[in-house]
Design a protein around this nucleic acid. Structure first.
Lengths: 235, 235
DNA sequence: AAGATGCGGCCAGTATGCGGCCGCAATTGC
DNA sequence: GCAATTGCGGCCGCATACTGGCCGCATCTT
């Protein structure tokens, strides 16, 4: 299953996930010692892959996309993962056909063996619906693009008390919390960080960036929500 | 420069070029014997790469693109949907790298514009973790296959009171409910429908089918759970 | 300042991969 | 249909290359 000669590929796949890892994490995943992970990373660097690392607490192994990476293929387990995750969303959004059609189309382009696996997972899995949450996928795309390009966003907003206003913000993150979708953004008029529920946003327009990305002044969104939630437009 | 442990990557790069090769060519290029090339190709196949080959004069070693998504297959919204659903699973299973690596690999096979959209969605979205739930993807695959083929499943089970037993069942559905994963199956020894928590199953073996699919005698799994949950092995 | 983490040298033990050989199968071209 | 070419994978003995542990040192966070 895992042999030294294929470990370089597995390591590459792990690093490519975008997560950061400690040598110890990688060692556990690959079932080798940390020393060997360091050696493997060194070999990858020797082949031209930009494996970055940094010592100290909160250490980091990551792959900077520098050169072309060989096509890393989906394993059967990963196909199970993808199909399952789409099924979860289908269960959450039973009136939204996007997920189901996407899953079907995806299955069609998988090679034979994986196609059977995907169909089997879809057939054998049932998700009991937990929390209804509908979302406007076009708005999700708009937010995604504006975050990626550093563009600003304008929209009509109706707050929890029913007051209407026009907002101009710098989007920071799109957030799923409990059963609602939110936008975490810097409100340019109110000069503060705010939380907006996506289903209360309307007529959004994107004003082309790029602007510099504003630094989010908390360690994490969780920190912000727990320390400061009273000040935002949503609880 | 060229060591056994990185040769799989080099071979992949050579095959990726689109050329076709004879084993002898590859052997010369990689400075190993043709026998070793065959072994390497075998390992790649074992990892899911579709390395095609054909004997005879004008022979051929090539890498068939296993999954390539045509530009018009998926809409931007559908890509947002898929990526989001994987992100949700990533948030649920923060210690499971499968979802993250799968998402990254998926991004790679998307055509350019959609690839940017996928990256943007992943960058701009954050999911706050609701319920921890870990799952053994290999077991998910086993269940999927057994449901698809009508095979039976045997496994060691530890029930909620800590009692161990060996079970022989006919799997019906794989179920995500609240924060746990379950198997809905017909227990052949107890002659009844039962619910098994996946994390309490061990040493599962599949006994080849196909057997006829047993009819599930309720309208839905929800109905069964609400009407009859006292009789099952899990609440 | 302290703790966490990465780096890479060294070394002994050994697992792993290697090459060569084989009979067999598949494909091409005559 | 036959011969030539090439891939497949089992087997075996050998030695290379990998492994893990240990170390002192550098780097980064708190």
């Amino acid at each position: 299953m895992d042999s030294p000669s294929t470990r370089s590929l597995e390591l590459l796949a792990l690093l490519q996930s975008g997560r950061t890892w400690t040598a110890h994490d990688l060692a556990a995943r690959l079932r080798v010692s940390a020393r060997t992970v360091r050696r493997d990373a060194m070999r990858l660097r020797g082949m031209g892959y930009d494996v970055s690392s940094r010592p100290g607490p909160g250490a980091l192994y990551a792959l900077r996309p520098s050169m072309k990476i060989p096509p890393l293929l989906l394993s059967a387990d990963e196909v199970s993962t993808i199909i399952t995750s789409i099924l979860i969303l289908e269960a959450w959004l039973p009136d939204d056909a996007k997920a189901a059609t996407a899953r079907t189309k995806l299955e069609q382009v998988l090679p034979g063996g994986l196609q059977r696996r995907a169909a089997a997972v879809a057939l054998s899995t049932q998700v009991l619906r937990e929390a209804p949450a509908s979302v406007d996928w076009e708005l999700v795309g708009t937010i995604a693009d504006s975050v990626a390009t550093g563009a600003r966003l304008g929209f009509d907003y109706t707050d929890q008390r029913g007051r209407h206003s026009r907002r101009r913000v710098e989007p920071y993150r799109h957030l799923l919390r409990q059963q609602y979708w939110y936008l975490v953004a810097y409100d340019l008029d109110r000069d503060d960080w705010r939380l907006f529920r996506l289903d209360r946003m309307e007529a959004s327009t994107i004003s082309p960036g790029p602007h510099a990305h504003r630094a989010f002044p908390w360690n994490s969104i969780e920190d912000w929500l727990t320390s400061d939630f009273g000040a935002s437009d949503e609880h």
